[in-house]
Nucleic acid binder design. Structure first.
Length: 101
DNA sequence: TAGACGTAGCGTCATGGGGC
DNA sequence: GCCCCATGACGCTACGTCTA
């Protein structure tokens, strides 16, 4: 898979929603200067939050993949054990049948 | 070969839970 | 109550495979 972050960065729907709601919150009752400052501060905080969440999501997916792999391995092991036990039972039954005959 | 379809990976948002 | 983290859900893109 050759998808990089940069390639998929463009335009997901949710992004705009978030930005517009922040703008709405930042606008009321301030001078132009402090308004600008507030906006910069808010958008910087937002960028930081998004970056953190991006990394968290990546890590979360990695852990999930690892977990699924573990489960698959466990399934394989249990299937083998099951086969072995079935064979063992069959052999036991065989021995028992010969004894009573 | 173009289009349909399935799959994998990504970024973002919403939300719940835990620590302070 | 606020902040941060983990994670499910959603939409999007890229890529591979199949089929008419």
């Amino acid at each position: 898979m050759a998808v990089t972050g940069d390639e998929t960065e463009t335009g997901s729907a949710g992004e705009l929603t978030g930005t517009s709601s922040i703008l709405t919150l930042a606008v009321p009752q301030t001078s132009t200067y402090s308004l600008k400052k507030t906006f910069e501060d808010v958008s910087q905080k937002r960028e930081h939050r998004l970056m953190k969440n991006r990394e968290a999501a990546r890590e979360c997916r990695r852990k999930k993949k690892e977990y699924v792999k573990c489960l698959e391995n466990r399934v394989a092991v249990l299937e083998n054990q099951n086969m072995t036990l079935i064979e063992e039972l069959r052999a036991m039954k065989d021995i028992y049948r010969h004894k009573i005959e």
